[in-house]
Design a protein around this nucleic acid. Structure first.
Lengths: 245, 245
DNA sequence: TCAAAAGTGTTTAGTTTACACCCATGC
DNA sequence: GCATGGGTGTAAACTAAACACTTTTGA
């Protein structure tokens, strides 16, 4: 079956930059190995063609689920890439999304549909297909910028987390050591974390677990101007409590 | 001539939200009156179909120029709109851009190509075609947010401006009165304005004219973390120097 | 009892806010 | 000479930064 139009049309795809946090709080991105022709064997962002009967975000979620098994996650539009030569098959415009997931709840899927998905550390990326390196770069920039003024970082953590988890997350994303005491007081002063029970089975003083109170945040941010989420610290020199002496 | 594809494809358009500042520092947007069928006679954002041989931003600039005569302006991608029913002609995905221009240098064009373009105050908009109201809403949100941390507001002013011009611009966009002394010191402390000559022919003490030093800003912002452009004030209650008692 | 991370409070420095009067010009 | 907006400095309040020791647990 063929489809005919009076004027030529580009193809439209979606691509997803899925971020997760590794065991050592290193930032990772979920890639798939391309089984088919252009860039066969290369690693690429999960994505594919938009169907006429689905919205853009829906297409991104569908492709993400089909190709990696990941679903029901935080996802947001990133940017639309439309360079003339970005796809050897012709004019393909790609609407990119980025997603944040708790990696431990989305380990590499058991390749159910023959495609191969894997989490890569941001600093150890393979060569990527198409202009996916550029898309990823933009996604990292966006994540770095947005984490400062929107509480999206929590999407990378499990529901219950310690303040140290949260701090390490920020340190990873911002690429900067933060002072523990100042971080804790800044975060707690916003009063958006719900205190839960203590950790168990750790070989040191157990930390309190917290949960992000999304409802409260949303209510507060409606009151324009009165409340501003902001995590920003002066550039620091990484020291803190340097034992002895 | 017809174009045939194996799979159905959406159409792709670009739309431009062009902002300008009116005489009384009111925010305005440039609209065109639709001459053709869907929504004929309605006001709409300038825009149109992307050609296969041009990039997205190039398409936005081309349509903007063709439909309104405006060219060589600050333009940036806003968001891509792809709701299934946003265009009665079928599936049309629109990549929206926003532009900032100095309105006095881009008055309503003399309708050279029969299309009619006009500047509308943001608060006195006509009914718009398609989902253009939604696009415009998103553009205003973006402008409000971005003006706080990027020096894009200058794009709305003539090259030479007074600090009062700049302050009124911020007051318009933020919808908030600012304190004159604090605004001045904050702006001047960033040391990004070049002092020029005095105003002439004003019936009061002439103000100094300034010029935004874009080169300096760009150089400074490369040094990551060291320099941060930021205009943000606590919500205020609009008073200042309330003369006499 | 040791190792390992959690937790905490205060002083200091820096930044932001609030605020009132004189100045330069055109009419 | 008067009306109009331009221009300025400082004290007070607040916020952010720096910093070291004690606590709790499992092994």
């Amino acid at each position: 079956m063929a489809y005919s139009y009076e004027h030529p049309r580009p193809s439209v795809t979606v691509d997803c930059v899925v971020f997760g946090l590794g065991d050592s709080y290193d930032l990772r991105v979920l890639l798939i190995e391309r089984a088919l022709d252009p860039y066969q064997g290369f690693w690429a962002l999960p994505g594919g063609f938009v169907r006429l009967e689905e919205g853009l975000e829906a297409a991104a979620r569908r492709e993400l689920h089909e190709e990696t098994g990941v679903r029901d996650v935080f996802i947001e539009q990133l940017y639309t890439f439309g360079a003339l030569d970005r796809d050897p098959r012709g004019r393909v415009i790609s609407v990119a999304y980025y997603a944040l997931v708790n990696l431990s709840e989305h380990p590499v899927k058991a390749s159910s549909d023959a495609r191969h998905a894997e989490w890569f550390k941001i600093e150890e990326l393979p060569e990527l297909a198409f202009d996916h390196k550029e898309i990823l770069k933009k996604a990292i920039e966006r994540l770095r910028a947005k984490v400062l003024y929107k509480p999206i970082g929590f999407e990378l953590l499990p529901e219950k987390f310690t303040l140290t988890d949260l701090q390490k997350l920020y340190e990873t994303i911002l690429g900067q050591k933060l002072n523990r005491r100042n971080f804790r007081s800044k975060i707690l002063k916003m009063d958006l974390l719900e205190e839960l029970e203590k950790q168990t089975n750790v070989a040191h003083r157990p930390a309190l677990l917290y949960k992000f109170n999304k409802e409260k945040y949303e209510e507060l941010s409606l009151r324009e101007g009165e409340f501003i989420f902001e995590i920003r610290f002066q550039p620091r020199d990484g020291r803190d409590e340097n034992e002895e002496e």
